[in-house]
């Protein structure tokens, strides 16, 4: 029985680390996209993207909405920072032996913030610019996947902890004592 419990714990740990590894990889992909678009902005290198039809990255990345309001800083910079923080959280989550709920909550909140920003940018692309940026869409998909993974992991861990609490309380109930 004890052996089975150990196996179950090990499986949970492997699953947790695997999930954090996936989150880390996704954060790296996001950082790569943001870094590329930031480089294109500052170095004026050609943007590898369609320039005709509804997909036109240059039109989006050179629009008035491509910078932080009242600055010349492209919004890819906060995007890059978001991805870096996500990667750091994934590393922290990976290093934690006992799936630390605080880190999982931080990942969930952070990815939710990213998702809200992505939805605003999708609004800008579709409604205001009538143009889609393929690179930006790639980043948005990464953010959505990271949010879903973070949510699943947080909910799973919450459920397990609740079960443990229930088990403990039931073992201490008067019926068990008798």
């Amino acid at each position: 029985m004890l052996f089975m419990l150990h196996i179950e714990e090990d499986m949970k740990d492997i699953q947790h680390r695997l999930t954090q590894g996936i989150l880390f990889l996704l954060a790296l992909i996001g950082a790569g996209i943001a870094l590329y678009l930031t480089t294109v902005h500052y170095e004026h290198v050609p943007l590898v993207c369609s320039t005709s039809g509804i997909v036109d990255c240059a039109r989006v990345t050179s629009s008035a909405y491509s910078v932080i309001p009242s600055t010349n800083v492209p919004i890819t910079v906060p995007g890059l920072l978001w991805a870096i923080v996500s990667a750091v959280l994934a590393v922290a989550g990976w290093r934690m032996q006992n799936q630390d709920r605080r880190i999982l909550l931080a990942q969930l909140v952070w990815s939710l913030l990213g998702l809200l920003a992505a939805l605003y940018l999708v609004y800008v692309e579709l409604v205001l610019l009538h143009t889609i940026c393929a690179w930006c869409t790639g980043m948005h998909v990464v953010i959505l996947i990271m949010f879903l993974i973070s949510m699943v992991q947080f909910l799973n861990t919450s459920a397990e902890e609740d079960d443990e609490v229930e088990e403990e309380s039931s073992s201490l109930s008067p019926a068990s004592k008798s």
């Binding site: 998702l115 939805l119 999708v122 409604v127 949510m151 699943v152 919450s158 459920a159």
Partner: peptide, 24 residues
């Protein structure tokens, strides 16, 4: 406590928002 209803709900919500943007 299955997370899947939440996942499906989130995907549907995002999809509805994007479709609304397209309509607008």
């Amino acid at each position: 406590r299955s997370p899947w209803p939440y996942v499906i709900g989130a995907i549907v919500l995002v999809g509805v928002i994007v479709i609304a943007f397209v309509v607008i």
